[in-house]
Measured scan of single mutants.
Amino acid sequence: CKVCGDVASGFHYGVHACEGCKGFFRRSIQQNIQYKKCLKNENCSIMRMNRNRCQQCRFKKCLSVGMSR
């Protein structure tokens, strides 16, 4: 997965992504979610083991690796 490094389940929203990141991105855009501000200057490292800790940084990384509708 380009977002968290887990095993990708396919090509989702323009990038190779796992089911977790695919679902997270889908919910984020469909529900237009505004995530809580990052407590670490929006510089969190997103990996499989910690991908749920900072939703703002995870969504930012989804966009930075090329995920789009």
Results as ranks from 00 to 15, higher is better:
27 R>E: 14
58 R>I: 02
40 K>D: 14
52 N>G: 04
42 E>Y: 04
36 K>L: 07
49 M>K: 14
18 C>R: 03
36 K>D: 07
65 V>C: 05
50 N>Q: 13
53 R>H: 13
38 C>K: 02
41 N>V: 07
16 H>V: 12
40 K>R: 12
19 E>Q: 03
63 L>V: 06
59 F>C: 02
30 Q>P: 06
39 L>Y: 12
58 R>G: 04
32 N>K: 08
29 I>L: 10
59 F>T: 06
52 N>E: 14
47 M>N: 14
27 R>V: 13
27 R>N: 15
59 F>K: 01
18 C>E: 01
45 S>A: 07
53 R>F: 15
59 F>M: 08
17 A>Q: 00
1 C>I: 06
48 R>G: 13
40 K>N: 15
35 Y>F: 14
16 H>L: 13
23 G>V: 12
14 G>C: 03
5 G>V: 01
69 R>V: 15
29 I>V: 10
25 F>I: 10
31 Q>P: 07
9 S>F: 04
55 Q>L: 12
26 R>Y: 09
50 N>F: 11
53 R>V: 14
65 V>I: 09
14 G>W: 01
50 N>S: 08
60 K>P: 00
60 K>V: 09
50 N>I: 07
19 E>H: 11
5 G>E: 05
15 V>L: 09
33 I>K: 10
40 K>I: 02
57 C>K: 04
66 G>L: 07
28 S>L: 03
46 I>G: 09
56 Q>V: 10
61 K>G: 08
42 E>R: 04
21 C>R: 10
16 H>K: 06
54 C>M: 04
14 G>A: 01
5 G>L: 02
29 I>E: 04
65 V>N: 04
62 C>V: 04
48 R>S: 12
53 R>I: 14
12 H>V: 05
7 V>N: 12
28 S>Q: 01
12 H>T: 06
29 I>R: 05
53 R>S: 14
49 M>E: 14
60 K>S: 09
37 K>D: 15
41 N>H: 04
63 L>K: 02
40 K>P: 06
2 K>R: 12
51 R>V: 13
60 K>Y: 14
42 E>L: 01
57 C>D: 03
6 D>K: 01
38 C>Y: 02
68 S>M: 12
39 L>V: 13
63 L>S: 00
48 R>L: 14
37 K>S: 13
40 K>L: 12
18 C>V: 02
33 I>Q: 05
64 S>W: 07
66 G>P: 02
50 N>G: 08
17 A>Y: 00
17 A>H: 02
43 N>L: 11
29 I>D: 03
24 F>L: 09
63 L>Y: 06
50 N>W: 06
3 V>F: 02
